[in-house]
Amino acid sequence: MDYVIETSNLSKLYGDVQAVKDVSLQVKQGEIFGFLGLNGAGKTTTIRMLLGMIRPSEGNVKVLGQALGPGGRGPWAQVGHLVESPSAYPELTVKENLDIARRLYGLKNPKAVDDVMEKLSIASYSRRKAGTLSMGNLQRLGLARAMIHNPSLLILDEPANGLDPAGVVEIRELLEVLAKNGVTVFMSSHILTEVDRLATRIGIIHRGQMIEDLDTEKLNKFRERQLEIKVRDVAKAHSLLTRANYSATMNGDSILISDTHALETPDEIARLLVNADTPPTHLAIRQQNLEEHFMKLTGNTK
């Protein structure tokens, strides 16, 4: 199968410091791949290697089926990128900044600039010098620059950085629409809730190594709601609930049920347990949390 991004044993060594080690990734077309990691985990180094800005010490990178060549050559006409904090030429206006991007991407039609300004809601700032923009608008300019050539792959480092809550929602919806139209998005972020809402796959990098690859199925499990029940006699309650056709599982000193019926009518479960003389001491709906999982994962490997 051809992947949009494919790396094998990607490593980067700066002197004695191992920034990235043996990272193997496969990202399919139309996926929104969330790349998570603590500060200094190796996210930006990996992203720069994907973009040919840094040469790997070992391993190789293929982007859109093409191995990156010397001088950072690659299929860049089809790739849009935003690396770390957005930057622009401060003495140029928003429109001029985008116009030079248009030319450097080899686009002939000047309308591409107006179109992308509309898409990113910065048309009203078109004559404003980039040096006077707020952080949020500078981020929008960076995203506009990444999208001006309608790329089939977007590599975005912290795309929600500096955006206000409405801007975060707007960018999320824009990326979702792009992904539905077949655009692949590879995004790093430290805003876990944002990644959790948007990503169809998540990779967690810690101390330069990929320690988790959560595909859609695993992610859906994280997003699943469960009814958590605590009783004094767990075995008795579990047997009772199973006999009542609930798919109950024991989890330490509690019982978990994912059935929709149970989630909608927890009062029926409470009544059942009370009538059987095993009243619940705790009854709550809980959702597994990516943040908890991430902290546990990165904390455990310290």
Binding site: G52, M53, E84, S85, Y89, L104, G106, R145
Partner: peptide, 16 residues
């Protein structure tokens, strides 16, 4: 100093 170097990389326009 303006950190715009990354805007000149990974483009169809070569570094040369």
């Amino acid at each position: 100093s303006d950190r715009t170097i990354k805007e000149l990389l990974s483009l169809p326009t070569s570094r040369e």
